[in-house]
Design a protein around this nucleic acid. Structure first.
Lengths: 191, 191
DNA sequence: GTCTATAAGTAGATAGAC
DNA sequence: GTCTATCTACTTATAGAC
């Protein structure tokens, strides 16, 4: 792997672990095993490198979610598979984490990948719910986009609760609670 | 107001805006209008001051939620009042935000107020749901604690989605979605 | 209690040699 | 392309005077 790719990968990891403010060029270089001059040759500076790293993380995140959402099963099963997929819960969400950083939110180049990832995920879930309504699996009700936002929020909030408790348990409880609530939207109510 | 209180208040604001890593003693002193020596006289250092600020924020957050959860109305109405209460959505949650900070999570003194706030809120909501089941307002189903975790996660995740979009709208959509899902738990299903 | 001085270390680069 | 040197500003204090 070349220096540029190693730099991007190290930046992805550090942004995930320490956020944008907490990530220094020096730390990136050390983890990548790359010198100062090399980094500034390939990238204009920290914001430029962070933008590249975030675009790549966003792409990976989208592929990861599509694997379950586009998989086999009923709409409910696919949503459950997505929410319940294996995660390193205590590490938090590498995309959602960036939303807390004021410098990321303030800089369009940095915020764009974050916003687009959530836009995509919400739209994908809303589309699935509508598909489930069309097929008779789900009953009509609240706007699909609102239910989708709530589901994505449960995941993101689940990460927050887990890190606050230093335990993955609150995340899993929140997901089970959300799936129980979603059951109430099925056309045939399970008893 | 004395120097100590001004320092705590400034720290609360800065932790909310910029997080623990992003908040420097210098910035705290300047906002508080207090000199270096004064700060180190009243507090041992940044962690000590941050711990005091977080304990105070946690207390305020709890009082704020109790105002709606302990208010008038049915259980559903009180939960809806809590989720829908006025918020400065784009500023995020001053407690939940801290969960992203590795130095906060790693330091028990700093993490404790965060964990305790969520523990209290989840327990309060779970208690309300059980109360609603006992009175016949809610139907039995998933463990109340799981539903409560999901509701708190929706709020925390809603903040994340709002900041990612630089708009309060995703937060409000997520809350509406969550309340629609919660309606499915009422004993008398509204049509 | 509050102030100023000092200090070792880091942040985030730029310059120029190789 | 990569390396080392250099630089200004900030971080997080400690020391000691007032």
């Amino acid at each position: 792997m070349n220096a540029s790719d190693r730099l991007i990968e190290s930046t992805q990891e550090l942004l995930w672990e320490r956020g944008y403010v907490g990530t220094s060029p020096k730390a990136i270089q050390q983890r990548a095993g790359v010198g100062q001059g090399s980094m500034y040759h390939h990238f204009q500076g920290k914001p430029d490198l962070a933008a590249a790293a975030l675009r790549r993380s966003a792409e990976e995140m989208r592929a990861l979610n599509e694997r379950t959402l586009g998989g086999p099963g009923s709409v409910y099963e696919r949503i459950a598979a997505c929410l319940g997929r294996e995660r390193e819960v205590l590490r938090g969400c590498r995309i959602g984490r960036m939303a807390q950083d004021p410098e990321v939110v303030a800089e369009p180049e940095l915020r764009a990948p974050v916003e687009e990832t959530f836009d995509w995920l919400v739209a994908r879930l809303a589309g699935l719910i509508e598909e489930g309504r069309a097929s008779g699996e789900f009953r009509p009700g609240a706007p699909a986009a609102e239910l989708a936002q709530a589901l994505v929020a449960v995941i993101q909030g689940g990460y927050v609760l887990a890190r606050a408790a230093d335990s993955a348990e609150p995340f899993h409880q929140a997901v089970r609670g959300a799936l129980a609530l979603l059951l109430g939207q099925l056309a045939e109510q399970p008893e």
